[in-house]
Each structure stands twice: as C-alpha cells, then as structure tokens.
C-alpha cells in the first residue's frame, strides 16, 4: 500500500505490505537497524521511536498507519559527529552493557524530556495538580517501558539526570 513517511528528515514514498510493522519497515526496508526487535509485542521497549515527537513502540504499529508522519529513530538524533546530549550521557554514565536496548532507551528518554516539558504527569507524580518535577522516582517510572536485562538501571537514571541537568 502506498505510504509517504518522513524518517529522520528524509521523505520516503513507498509501496509497503500492509502487514509490515513500522519496526520492520525501518529495519528491513530503510536499513535503519538501530531500532531493535526484542519482543515484537510491546513488552520490552527496544523498538521505541519518536513519531511526530511522541515515543511509541514501533513493533505495535503498521507502516501503513504512518502515512504523512514524521519518524525519528536513534539514527536521527546525533548532528553529524556531535552526539545528542542523551547519547553522550549514556556513554559517560555507562548506561548500557550489551547495547541492545540502548537505542530504545535513548529514544524513550528523548520522549520523556518532551513529556516533562509539556507538564505530563506519571504514576510517580505525587500531586497531579502541581507542576511536574523530574525527580529520580519520575525518571524510574517513566523509563519503565524499556527493559534492560543487563540491568543498567542505576546508570540509565544517572544518564537521564545528567542530560536533564545539562538541558535545564
């Protein structure tokens, strides 16, 4: 089915199998293999990408659902040689080991920053009517959609905190 989609700033007009997930479209059709397939069922977060600035699981979406959408993947975060602040923070804090969940974690954290800026609450938000503040508890809860079996969670927390501090 004919689908027009912008990925990391590049427009693609493609004819795609209706069954092709956004994740497989990125990986197998556009050769953007940074988004990972950990479970293919929305239960690990390794495929997290940003669609129109909002983080979603690319495995639970069809490419044909994204006609006209703007998708950002891990490959679209750095500006040339300069890493995105979250990529640099993950590197500095050693917020990964095997690296397989890492692109999803980083895209997720990019989404998190935007959600905080927009004042969106989470389950960890103590008072839903107060301004949302990026506490450690907020980071942990908001990053819980990204499993890391190497269990780099303390380092991921430090990385998000570092990048958030740099952005503040």
């Amino acid at each position: 089915m004919r689908t027009e989609i912008r990925v990391n700033g590049v427009d693609h007009a493609v004819d795609v199998d209706t069954r092709t997930s956004l994740l497989d479209f990125l990986r197998e059709h556009l050769d953007l293999k940074g988004s990972k397939k950990g479970c293919d069922h929305g239960q690990c977060g390794a495929c997290t990408v940003l669609v129109n600035g909002v983080r979603i699981n690319a495995c639970l979406s069809l490419a044909v659902m994204h006609d006209g959408d703007h998708v950002t993947t891990i490959e679209g975060l750095a500006s040339g040689e300069a890493l995105h602040p979250l990529q640099q923070a993950f590197l500095t804090e050693d917020a990964f080991q095997c690296g397989y969940c890492t692109p999803g974690q980083i895209c997720s954290a990019v989404g998190l920053m935007a959600e905080i800026a927009a004042g969106q609450p989470s389950e960890a938000t103590a008072d839903l009517n107060a301004k949302v503040v990026l506490t450690d508890a907020e980071i942990r809860e908001r990053m819980s959609g990204n499993l890391c079996r190497c269990s780099a969670y303390p380092q991921i927390l430090a990385a998000v905190r570092r990048a958030a501090g740099a952005a503040a």
Binding site: G42, I56, L60, Q120, L128, S144, G145
Partner: peptide, 28 residues
C-alpha cells in the same frame, strides 16, 4: 491522563490510566 480537567476533577481516572502499560503504549 494529562488533561488538566481530568487531573483535577477525575484523578482516579488519571491515576488508573497512568498505572497501566508504559508511556510508549499509552501514547499510542
């Protein structure tokens, strides 16, 4: 769950939604 009217008048709904799945899934 982020709508200020839901948060202030129906916090039980906001909290129930926020306790489900993950942010990525709730965004979709």
């Amino acid at each position: 769950a982020s709508d200020p009217r839901i948060r202030s008048r129906y916090p039980v709904l906001a909290r129930a939604i926020l306790s489900g799945a993950s942010v990525q899934l709730r965004n979709k």
